[in-house]
Nucleic acid binder design. Sequence first.
DNA 1: ACCAGGTGCTAATGGGTATTAGCATTTCCG
DNA 2: CGGAAATGCTAATACCCATTAGCACCTGGT
Lengths: 367, 367
Amino acid sequence: MTRGPARRPTQADVARLADVSQATVSLVLNERDAGVRISPATRERVLSVIRELGYVANASARSLAGGRNRIIGVYTFEPVFPTTSVDFYFPFLLGMEQEAAELGYDLLLFTGVAGGRQIFRDGSTRLALADGALLLGRYPNVEEIEQLRDSGYPFVYVGHREVSGAPIPYVAADYARATQRLTERLFAVGHERVVYARIGNGDAQPSRDREKGFRRAVPAGDLRRPVGPVWTLESPDEVAGLLAEIRRAGVTAVVAEQHVLAQELLACGERQGMSVPGDLSIVVLGDSTGARGDDTPWTGLVVPREQMGRQATRLLVRLLKPAEEEAARCESVECPLVPGATVAPPPVPSRQRRPRRQPRQTGVSTT
Amino acid sequence: MTRGPARRPTQADVARLADVSQATVSLVLNERDAGVRISPATRERVLSVIRELGYVANASARSLAGGRNRIIGVYTFEPVFPTTSVDFYFPFLLGMEQEAAELGYDLLLFTGVAGGRQIFRDGSTRLALADGALLLGRYPNVEEIEQLRDSGYPFVYVGHREVSGAPIPYVAADYARATQRLTERLFAVGHERVVYARIGNGDAQPSRDREKGFRRAVPAGDLRRPVGPVWTLESPDEVAGLLAEIRRAGVTAVVAEQHVLAQELLACGERQGMSVPGDLSIVVLGDSTGARGDDTPWTGLVVPREQMGRQATRLLVRLLKPAEEEAARCESVECPLVPGATVAPPPVPSRQRRPRRQPRQTGVSTT
DNA sequence: ACCAGGTGCTAATGGGTATTAGCATTTCCG
DNA sequence: CGGAAATGCTAATACCCATTAGCACCTGGT
C-alpha cells in the first residue's frame, strides 16, 4: 500500500483471492443478463475482494477487449481553450458535463496532438479510448467526419452538419424555426420591407438554416410583403453602404445574422441620426454571449448551448446501446427568443418616410 | 471504405502485406535506438504499406502493452460546472488543457457519480483510468487525499494543501508573498495603522497564507508601525461595525481578504462620506475575476489560475516518469500585483483626520 | 577450417479484459 | 431410478501491440 508503484490489482488477483476464475470476476463486474449465471454467494465474495483490493478495471484492456469504458470523448476541431473561443465552447462543455455526470460517464477531452488537430493521424486515433465521442467545432474537417462515420465509431456532432454520403448524427439548435418566428414577428407588428443581412458568405450550415427560416417567414405570394432580399456583406466596413441601401429601399426592419453586424448597423445608424427601433427595427440571429460592453437590449435568439451539450450527450449514450443503434440520430433544440427592445412598429403606418437630413457626418465610417 | 464497421488494419495486416513479421512493423513504428536493427530497405517497405493501408495504432493496445495511457485525470472536489463555480474553475482547466496538449496528453474529466463526490467509492477508483490526476477544489476531503497519497497514485493538488502525514505534491499561488508586498506598499506610502480583515474564519490554507504574508510585512519591533490586528467578520453585514472600528482606531488602510468585503467596505464607506483612497486605502487579496458590475480599479493581486493549471500539469507529468519520482513536489507561482487606484498616502501626514461630512459623491464611482 | 562478432529479422510472450463453448454438478420430473 | 434440464462455473481465446531472446546468415580474422 505504502511503497512503490505497486502494480494495480487485476482481475486475476481478485480471482485468486476469491478462489474463482478470472472469467468469473469479469462476469461479476459486467452484470450480463445473457447466458452465464453467478450465484449470489460467489458474486458477493468476489465483490468483497474487489472492494478490499480496490480493484479498478484497466481502461485500455477493457476497450481493447471490446468492452465499454463509461467514457465519453470530446473532440473539438478548433482548440477549445484558445481564449477567444472560451465563451463559445464552455457552455457546451457545461451541459455535457452535467449530463455525463447524471448518466455516470466521465468526459475525456482530446487535446489533439501538438501542432495540427486531426482525428486520424499517425498513431493517434485516441478517440478509440472513449466509448463514443461528441464532436464540436465551427469549421470541422468534413473528410475526417466522413471517415469517422464510415469507421462505425459512435459519435454525435454538436451543431447542424451535413456531409456527403450517409447522414451523421447531430444535435443542432433550431435556427430555422427561431429565425422564422422572429421574422414573423416583424411582419406582425407591421413591417413590410424586411431584409436579411449577413457578413461573409452563407456557406456554413447554421447560416443556411437561418436564411431558410427567414425565407419561410416571408409569404411568397403576398404582394404587400415582398420577399426581402438577402444581402451579403464582405466585412463590417460595408455597413454604411448597407444602410444607404436600406434607406433608399424604404426598408424598415433588418434581420442581422451576426451580432457584430447588428452592432455596426446600430452605431452607424445612430451617427446618421437614425433611431433604433424608432426608424429601423433590428433582429439579431447570433447570440451576444460574451460580447463585452454592449448593453443594447437586442431582440433576437439565444443559442441554447448548454441544452445542446446535454442533449448531444444523451443522444450519444443512446447510440452506444447496440440495440438502439438505429434510433433517431438527429435532434434539434428550440432556440429561446429574446424579446429585447430593438423591434417596434415601422415609423409611419404605410408610407415611406424620408430620411432626416440634419447636419451630420457622412455615412462612411470605418469603425 | 464506405461500408461496414470495417475493422481497422492492424500491425499484423501490415506485416502480411509487407512480408515481414508483426514485430518488425512494431519496430519500424517505434524507432528504438536499442538493440534491434532494421535495414533501410525493409523499413521503407513497411512504411509504404502503412501509408497505403492508412494504418493507425490502436491506442488501447498500445497503452496496454506499454502501461501508460497518456491521460491526465482532473478531479474536483466540488462539481466544476455548477454555474457559480465556472469562473473559478475554468482558468485552471484552460491552463491544464494547453499544457496537456503540448505534452501530448489528453484530459479526463471525472464527473463524479451523481450525488456525492468521492474519489473512493464502492471500489471504483475511476481515477486509475488516468496515468495521474490533477486535484482541484476549495474544500477537499482531506482523508481522501491522504488515502490517495498512501496508495502511491501520482497526483498534484492545484492550490496549497497541507495534510497530516507525508506532504503531498501541489502547485500553489504565492499568496503570502503577494500579500506581503502589497502590505509593504501600504507602509511605504506612509500608512501606519493598517488592519487585515476577512469574512469567515481563516481556516483554509490560502487564508492562512495571506495572513502570514501580512504579518511578515509588519515589522514586529517597529513601534511606529504597530502590528495591525486581524479582524474576522462573520458576514458582510458586519462591515458597518468594522468601519466604525476603523475610524475609531484611526486606521488608514485595510487589507481585505475577499473581494466582496472590499466592495462592501467601499459602498458602506461612501455612504458615510468617506472617500477611497482619499480617506481610506484598500487592498484586495481575492481576485475580482468574474465580478459583475464592479468597475472599481482595485489595488490587489491576480490569482494566476491559468499559470497554476499549466504548472501543475507539468509537475504531474514529471512525477509520472519513474526516474524523477522523487523530484521536487511542491511549487509556487508568483501572483502578479495589480497597481489599481485604491491605495494612496494616508489623509493627513501623521495626525488623524475627522471624516468629512459633506453630502456628496466621492471620487471612486461604484458604477 | 573454425570461431568471433555483427546484422537483420522472427518467434514467443505478456499485458488485462470480455466472451463463448463447454464441463461438472445438482435438481427436477416422470 | 434414469434422463433431461437447469445451474454455476472454467478454460480458452481474441483483442493489438511492445519487447526480448535468439536464430540464421554473413563477414572477417586466425
